[in-house]
Amino acid sequence: MRSAIRGEVASIEPLDEVERAHIEDTLAWIDSGAELCRIQKPAIPPKHLVSYFVLVDEEHVLLVDHKNASLWLPTGGHVEPGEHPRATVARELREELGLELRQPVMAPLMLTCSQTVGITAGHTDVSLWYVIDANRSEPLTFDTEEFNSVRWFHAGEAPLSRSDPHLQRFLNKLNRRRRPV
């Protein structure tokens, strides 16, 4: 599985020097033989792999008001030992939003490394950002234990001051993908 995860990371074309540095750091971490997945909540090991997946409908993105982080975040979850990050997307899509995948999960668009905040603050999430095409009129059944609410935001109106510190960069990259330079 380590080589498959390495392949996911290596497939990402960096947006900028920040992402290039995150990718280089992540590849070195993978190659070090360190445990990549969280094996005990909340943060053992203190650096572990996460699959974010952003539901996208034209210029709208779905974000969740995450209870523990007190932020508006993309949906996602920790990659389990032996699980491919794309399988994490399918599992978490069901668990968090009550949806089934309708198309294969494509390669991640972005990778970020972030220090967590909120109730379980202080560890590092290495996050693969996947894009899932969705329909914002489709009903969602979200996990009320984990989220206060879910909401579609126009990309230009996303609550950046209360979100993942890399969300703006992700939205820029997503926009660039839609409208190649």
Rank of each mutant, 00 (worst) to 15 (best):
Val54Leu: 15
Trp152Arg: 06
Cys113Trp: 03
Ala21Arg: 12
Leu167Thr: 01
Gly82Ala: 09
Pro104Val: 08
Ala34Ser: 15
His84Asp: 14
Gly98Leu: 07
Leu171Thr: 01
Arg162Pro: 00
Glu80Pro: 04
Glu83Ile: 12
Tyr130Gly: 01
Gly118Ile: 06
Ser32Val: 09
Glu80Gln: 15
Gly156Phe: 07
Leu171Cys: 01
Asp125Ile: 01
Thr26Pro: 00
Gly122Leu: 10
Arg91Cys: 07
Arg91Asn: 08
Leu62Asn: 03
Val64Asn: 04
Ser163Lys: 04
Ser149Asp: 15
Ser3Trp: 14
Leu140Trp: 06
Phe153Asn: 03
Ser51Arg: 05
Phe153Ala: 00
Phe153Ser: 02
Asn175Trp: 08
Gln103Ser: 13
Val50Glu: 04
Glu35Thr: 12
His154Leu: 07
Asn148Ala: 12
Leu174Pro: 02
Gln40Phe: 02
Pro85Lys: 07
Ala87Gln: 15
Ser163Trp: 03
His123Arg: 00
Asp125His: 10
Asp31Arg: 09
Thr120Leu: 13
Leu174Thr: 01
Leu97Trp: 09
Gly76Asp: 05
Thr124Tyr: 12
Gly156Asn: 15
Glu146Val: 14
Leu171Ser: 03
Val150Gln: 07
Gly122Glu: 14
Thr124Ser: 12
Val79Cys: 01
Tyr52Asn: 14
Ala155Glu: 12
Val131Ala: 02
Leu55Gln: 01
Arg169Ile: 11
Phe53Glu: 04
Arg20Asp: 01
Trp72Ile: 03
Leu128Tyr: 04
Val79Pro: 01
Pro14Val: 11
Glu24Thr: 13
Ile39Leu: 13
Asp31His: 02
Glu17Ala: 13
Asp57Asn: 04
Thr144Met: 14
Phe170Lys: 03
Asp16Tyr: 09
Trp129Arg: 03
His84Glu: 08
Ser70Asp: 14
Met110Glu: 10
Ser114Pro: 01
Pro180Asn: 11
Gln115Trp: 02
Asp164Trp: 08
Pro74Cys: 11
Val56Phe: 03
Pro46Leu: 09
His154Lys: 11
His78Asn: 01
Glu58Arg: 09
Glu157Gly: 02
His60Gly: 03
Arg169Lys: 13
Ser11Gly: 09
Gly118Gln: 06
Ile12Thr: 05
Val79Met: 09
Val50Gly: 05
Val50Lys: 05
Ala107Leu: 14
Pro85Val: 04
Asp143Thr: 05
Ile132Leu: 15
Ser32Tyr: 06
Leu71Glu: 05
Pro159Lys: 02
Arg2Gly: 02
Gly76Met: 04
Ser161Pro: 00
Ser70Pro: 00
Asp164Arg: 07
Leu27Phe: 09
Trp29Phe: 15
Ala10Asp: 15
Arg169Cys: 11
Ile44Arg: 15
Ile39Glu: 13
Glu146Leu: 14
Glu145Gln: 13
Val61Pro: 00
Ser137Arg: 09
Leu97Thr: 08
Asp133Tyr: 12
Arg169His: 12
Trp72Leu: 09
Ala43Thr: 08
Pro159Thr: 05
Gly98Ser: 09
Trp129Lys: 03
Ala43Ser: 11
Trp72His: 10
Pro42Asp: 03
Pro45His: 10
Glu19Phe: 07
Arg102Trp: 12
Ile5Gln: 06
